[in-house]
Amino acid sequence: MNTLRLIYVFFRVSVLNETAYRVNFFVQLFQSILELGTALAGLAVIFSYTQSLGGWRPNEMLALVGVYFLVGGIISLVIQPGMAALIDSVRDGTLDFTLTKPEDAQLLVSIQRVAIWSLLDLLMGTGVLITALVLLGKSVGLGEAVQFIGMLLAGAVIVYSFWLILASLSFWFVRVENLLEIFQSMYQAGRWPISLYPGWLRFALTFIVPVAFATTVPAEALTGRLGGPTLLEAIGLAILLFAIARVIWRLGLRRYSGASA
């Protein structure tokens, strides 16, 4: 309960901060629409030459684009800003202020910064997803809906844990911003079904940089092509990565010596 209250407070502060810069809203709106338009136009070019891409029909690909924007929105809404701020605060020593607060420090650093205009990506992703489902003309059963939400959550946890692990490396190394860039550029590959890629790339996008679980797997759940093993794998990996991230964060904190110590 306390966690939820904290999240609410931090979110509110971010909203108040950001509403001072209202032009940013329109700039972000412009950029998000452009990005979505590009993605859709790209699909249009490809599907003018084929009926299905690696077994995915146009409307199913549309659902995947929706998930891509939805998850990308979550990443740029909380995960990316918080982790970037964590790296900065470890280097500057301002993490001291967070550590002195009587709450779990991992929670505090994770929600410290919210880029609220990224909600636009989240909303657009959802919109595209709903459109895709309507076009697919099939009613999503309760089972599929539960699976989808479960896989979306698992994907978000996996991505969050992965970022926290990378960001925690800043306790040992000074320059790790670049590592975060790797995820950002590999994430683009998640706009296409992971099954298209050759084995080595699929492996890299699943287990080294876990992009597959963030986009392809939830979309598979929604379009009813998710197998039981993948489902269990996603949940297992989410729990495992979260635990590993927690341990590395703890070890890092023990190493952290503050700005003036």
Binding site: I46, Y49, T50, L53, G54, W192, L196, Y197, P198, L201
Partner: peptide
């Protein structure tokens, strides 16, 4: 894009 178009 190489992979996508090869698939197509």
């Amino acid at each position: 894009y190489l992979i996508v178009w090869s698939t197509v």
